[in-house]
Design a protein around this nucleic acid. Structure first.
Length: 410
RNA sequence: GCUAAGGUAGGGUAGCUGGACAUCCUAUAGGACUGUGGAUCCUUUGACCCGGGUUCGAGUCCCGGCCUUGGCCCCA
């Protein structure tokens, strides 16, 4: 028997119902903030991703040459593609642009809990605005999206400026090493790294920076920096919306293109791959040949959210099983059409089962009602509507039966 | 890329100190039952991940691969 490729999954109807339920809730939140959905190609020119993230990521991508010799990659993330689309199609659109997407990505990595080779991201990008209000809006949206899913998470917010000010005396390679240690909150690694590059004096203030619980503790370490006002304003806006978060000025993320506010969210029941959201303020458009534009965005690891949520029970719409005999199928089809016209889901036997077996099958499949149409009902032009949860039934007109199911009077 | 554990019907399992038609539960399909059977009973369908090796004989032991699940690395 053939197996599915490593790191991929099949989703059967029960699981898809759960995934679509959460997806729908997230879409509703994104739209409520005025964000419109965009879709970009599932594959792009390889260069799009190497420009953004460096050649080193080729090893973790599904990269290949197409039949025309073009270097192509299945998208490993969506932000780069969205910015490319912006540069191609929407540079002159009125600002700001509020976009969201829900789409699958592909990475050639070792699968483990919450990590698959095909996975879905729900993300948002706010393009063209550069303000504390913009930062706060995107973070609030990220928070509300996660909240709408029901997942338990902790939101952590930081900013690259304080860290970068303190590391201003280091060269780029040294900065990168130190920031990696800060991002991991690994003080042992931080100490040895700083000692190795001859800046042991930075250890104590950097530890104070990443463990600071309030902004004033941050300014105590950094002094007044130009970004102070912007950061304080953003935090005020978040507090005004009662958005709970912890500050963490050790967040460095990829660092390559993030330029300001950065934030992450973690679920506590996921093991090693527990980050469910990441984002920040970035500048990418100029890399892809566009005019530079300030942007802020994030992506949610949708699969990790689903893993963290575990079993959920989406609100189910009623299902009517129309039960008929061979002689009453014509009347049964008419009844099915009437229910469907009212937006109600209808299933009918297609296995030539007996009347009783049809009812049994309806019960097992989880239908909420059975509409019984035997010789008696067909002759009278009625249906007997049986509420399967309560085992109560009543013969009535078809229109009354449709009304009863539609109004959920069960 | 590194590392640990694992892989027996669709799902869950027993067998795994080598030995005859591989156990049980559940599920599928059909029937008992021709209009109210989520039940019960009967029947059916259905598996040793793949390939080598050792052996008279391999689900069981050995090697390799594939896949799964954790952890590391990475995390755009």
């Amino acid at each position: 028997m053939l197996q599915k490729p490593r790191g991929t999954r099949d989703f059967l109807p029960a699981e898809m119902a759960q995934r679509r339920y959460i997806e729908r809730r997230m879409r509703t939140v994104a739209r409520s903030f005025g964000y419109g959905e965009v879709q970009t190609p599932m594959f792009e020119e390889l260069e799009l991703f190497t420009l953004k993230s460096g050649e080193g990521i080729i090893g973790e991508m599904y990269a290949f040459e197409d039949k025309g010799g073009r270097k192509i990659a299945l998208r490993p993330e969506i932000t780069a593609a969205v910015v490319r689309a912006y540069v191609n199609e929407a540079q002159v659109a009125p600002k700001p642009l509020r976009w969201f997407y829900f789409a699958e990505c592909f990475r050639y990595e070792r699968p483990q809990k919450g990590r698959y080779r095909q996975f879905w991201q729900f993300g948002c990008e706010l393009i063209g605005a550069d303000s504390a209000a913009a930062d706060a809006e995107v973070i609030a949206l990220a928070y509300e999206l996660l909240k709408s899913s029901g997942v338990r998470f902790i939101l952590k917010i930081g900013h690259l400026a304080p860290m970068k000010h303190m590391l201003a005396g280091l060269d780029a390679v040294e900065q990168k090493k130190v920031m990696a240690a800060l991002d991991k909150r690994d003080t042992d690694l931080l100490e040895t790294t700083l000692a190795a590059i001859g800046h042991p004096d930075l250890f104590e203030p950097l530890v104070r920076l990443i463990t600071a619980a309030t902004l004033n503790e941050v300014w105590d370490v950094t002094g007044d920096i130009p970004e102070k006002e912007r950061i304080e304003e953003t935090f005020r806006y978040l507090a005004a919306q009662n958005i709970p978060f912890v500050q963490n000025f050790g967040i460095a993320r990829g660092l390559d293109y993030y330029t300001g506010m950065v934030f992450e969210a973690f679920a506590d029941n996921l093991g090693a791959e527990n980050q469910i959201l990441g984002g920040g303020v970035y500048r990418l458009a100029h890399l892809f040949g566009g005019k530079d534009v300030p942007s802020c965005g994030f992506a949610i690891g949708f699969d990790r959210v689903m893993v963290s949520l575990g079993e959920i029970v989406p609100e189910a719409a009623p299902v009517v099983a129309v039960v008929a005999t061979p002689g009453t199928r014509a009347a049964a089809y008419a009844a099915a059409a009437a229910f469907r016209a009212a937006g109600i889901t209808v299933v009918m036997d297609v296995m030539d089962r007996s009347f009783g077996a049809q009812l049994s099958s309806a019960l097992k499949s989880g239908a909420s009602y059975a509409a019984l149409i035997g010789e008696k009902e067909a002759a009278a032009g009625t249906v007997t509507l049986k509420n399967l949860a309560q085992a109560a039934q009543k013969e009535m007109n078809l229109t009354d039966a449709v009304d009863e199911v539609a109004n959920g009077s069960c």
